[in-house]
């Protein structure tokens, strides 16, 4: 590889990736057309591609997208506010932190989405249940990373503040918080990822709300091509969201 011209070496991987994807799709198309793969189990990729237009025009994708985005936004708001506040609180009270941090880590390892039937009973089959699932599943990483961020503040920076006679609240807002902010943001982003995954998942499971429900409905209608297209659409939306949040994080870290 090292001998290749630079420009070629740069595009080659991307070309190989896209080419590989195209090859898999073409192979699938061929196998189905040859009758080696049942077209009632796997629809033709070309049909799926055509169905994109259908789901966008006929299935209210925009309003579904907005419904999911609204739920995600509400959960994001709750996660960042509560997570950062609780994390800061745990950091300030060391004994409490030592008592609770491993509990929070345990919750982060528990399949919290499974609470959804419980939330269905408590909140009903509505957007609130979905938002609460998003909130609960995104909270532990936000708390953990906030605590980690504060704990990682270099002692010397706090000493600088103290040498300039800063008050405790100035120490917090001028030094500890900005110093912890990059790690806090990593935690919030992680939390939002979990929130979004579980929001779409629960939409699918309880057949309510936005994009997740779309997949479920199409599956129930047995509209194969459209269902595959809807799945691809959801994947595209989430991939777009993750790329955007990654870019945002990098930008924030650079300007931090």
């Amino acid at each position: 590889m090292a001998n290749r011209p630079l420009a070629e070496a740069k595009c080659l991987p991307a070309a190989l990736g896209l080419g590989g994807l195209a090859a898999v799709l073409a192979l699938t198309e061929m196998l189905i057309r040859l009758g080696w793969v049942n077209r009632f189990i796997v629809p033709l990729p070309s049909e799926v591609f055509v169905s994109f237009e259908r789901i966008i025009l006929e299935e209210n994708v925009l309003s579904r997208f907005l419904a999911t985005a609204g739920e995600a936004l509400a959960a994001a708001f709750l996660v960042s506010l509560t997570g950062v506040a609780l994390g800061a609180f745990l950091h300030r009270h060391r004994l409490l932190r030592r008592a609770c941090e491993s509990w929070v880590a345990g919750l982060a390892a528990a399949p919290l989405v499974l609470l959804y039937p419980l939330f269905l009973v408590i909140f009903g089959r509505n957007a609130l249940t979905i938002v609460m699932i998003g909130f609960v599943s995104g909270l532990p990483p936000a708390i953990l990373k906030t605590v980690e961020g504060f704990a990682g503040t270099p002692k010397v920076l706090l000493d600088v503040g103290r040498s300039f006679s800063l008050s405790p609240s100035q120490l917090f807002w001028k030094i500890a918080f900005p110093s912890a902010l990059p790690v806090i943001f990593v935690g919030v982003r992680l939390g939002l990822m979990f929130s979004l995954i579980n929001i779409v998942g629960v939409e699918f499971l309880i057949n309510f709300g936005g994009l997740g429900q779309l997949v479920n409905e199409l599956a129930e209608r047995y509209d194969l091509a459209a269902m595959y297209a809807a799945i691809c659409f959801v994947i595209l939306v989430s991939v777009f969201f993750f790329i955007a949040s990654e870019k945002l994080e990098r930008w924030l870290l650079r300007s931090a």
Binding site: V156, D159, S165
Partner: peptide, 27 residues
């Protein structure tokens, strides 16, 4: 306690990475 009459410079890396050089000096 800490007093403006004594200014401390620390051994470790102690500039604030989230502030510009100017804002560091202005801190």
């Amino acid at each position: 306690g800490p007093d403006p009459a004594i200014g401390m410079v620390f051994q470790e890396e102690s500039t604030f990475p989230w502030r510009t050089v100017g804002d560091n000096v202005a801190f």
